[in-house]
Amino acid sequence: MSAGEAWGPRRWAQNGAVRLAFDEFMPELGGEPLLIVTGLGAGRHWLPDGFCEQLAEHGFAVARYDQRDGGESTHLPPIAVRNPIAALLTRRGEAYTAEDVADDATAVLDELGWSSAHLLGVSLGGAVAQRIALRHPGRVRSLISVDAVPGDVTGLRTLRYIRLGTLAKFARVKFPDTREGAVDAGVAVAKLLSSPNREFDEAAVRAGLELNPDSGIHDQEAQSRQIGAQWSGPAISEITQPTLVVHGEDDPLIKTSAAHVIASRIAGARLLLLPETGHDLPAHVWQPLSAAIRELADTNA
C-alpha cells in the first residue's frame, strides 16, 4: 500500500461558515485518537506520511486537518494586511480570532466522533494546539507542541522568538500560481527550513510535493490572516494536560529559546530537543519522537 492509499477519504467538518478538510491514517487500525494541527500556510499533506505511520505503529489513530485558510479548507476574503510580517507587527486580526481557530479543532473532533484526543501541533499549529488545550481542556488528552512560540504571545512580543532573516526570506518566496509553481515554492521553503547540518534531499522533497503540491506555502494573503488571528484567552501557564515541547536544535526560523520558555511555563512539561533538525520533521526523528509521544500518552493512561 502506498502512502497516499493509507489515508482514508477526505471528509469535512463545519464551524459556522468555515468548512474544514480532514482525513484519517489507516482508520481501520483503530488506536488512541491523535489529531495533528498544521503550520502556517501548510496543508495537511505537509507532515510526512512516514511519521504518521510511526505514530500508528505506536498505537495511535491519527487524523489531520487543514486549518482555515490552508489546504482544502475554507479560505477567507482578503483583508487590508496582506503580508504575514506586517500582520505579525501590526497585530491585525480582521478576519477571525485565535479562539475561532481553536474551535475549528473541536469541530473536527466532533465529526470524527472523538470526545477527546492527543493533540500534536507543528509550528503555528503548535501555538494553536496550546490554545485548544486552554479553551477546550476536556477535549485534549495530552499536548505535543513542535517548533512553536508560546501560544499566549502575540504581536511584537513574538519577535524575540523568531529569526527575522529567515522570516524575510520566507516572505520573498514567490512563484507562479500554478501546480509547478506550488512544487517549486514547496522545495524552496523546505530547503529554507531544513537543518544546515544535514544534506538536503531535494529529489525526495520534490517527489513528495509532486504528489500533493501545496499553494498555501506561498500564499501570503492567507498566511497574513492566519498569523493575524489574536488570542485573548488564558496564559499557557494554565495548561494542565501532560505536555511535550519539541524543537529542532537547528531550527532556522524559531529560536530554541521558545521551547525552553514554553516548557518552563507549563507545569510538568517535558522538553525534547531534536539534533540535526530544522523547522521540520526529517526521517531520523520519526521513531524517537513517536516513542516520546507514546510515553507522554502513557502518563495519562
Rank of each mutant, 00 (worst) to 15 (best):
V62I: 14
E57H: 14
F60V: 10
A21W: 07
Q54A: 15
A42S: 14
P27M: 13
F60W: 06
A42T: 09
D49T: 13
V37N: 02
L20H: 05
E24N: 02
A56Y: 08
L55I: 12
F51G: 05
H45L: 01
V37A: 06
A42P: 01
R44M: 15
V18E: 00
C52N: 04
F60G: 04
R44Q: 15
P27Y: 12
E57T: 14
R44C: 05
D23E: 14
V37H: 01
G39H: 03
A17C: 04
F51D: 03
R19H: 10
M26E: 14
E57N: 14
E57P: 02
G31I: 10
T38R: 05
L55A: 11
G41S: 04
L55G: 11
A61M: 04
V18T: 13
G50I: 14
I36W: 11
A61W: 01
G50F: 08
L29G: 06
L55E: 05
L40M: 14
P27D: 13
L34W: 03
V18K: 01
V37K: 00
L20M: 05
E28N: 10
D49Y: 10
G39Y: 01
I36P: 01
H45C: 04
G43T: 04
L35P: 09
P27F: 13
G30H: 07
A17V: 12
C52F: 03
E53W: 10
G30D: 08
V37S: 06
Q54E: 15
L20W: 03
L20F: 05
V37R: 00
A17K: 08
L20I: 11
G43M: 00
L29Y: 06
A17M: 08
E28K: 11
L20A: 06
F25H: 12
L20V: 09
F60N: 07
L40P: 06
A21D: 06
H45M: 05
P27H: 12
E53H: 14
I36V: 15
D49V: 08
L20T: 08
E24D: 05
L47R: 08
D23K: 07
M26C: 12
G43A: 06
P27V: 15
G59Q: 07
A61Q: 12
V18W: 00
G50T: 13
L40H: 05
V18R: 01
G31E: 03
G39W: 01
P33Y: 09
E32K: 12
M26Y: 02
R19T: 14
T38L: 05
E24G: 07
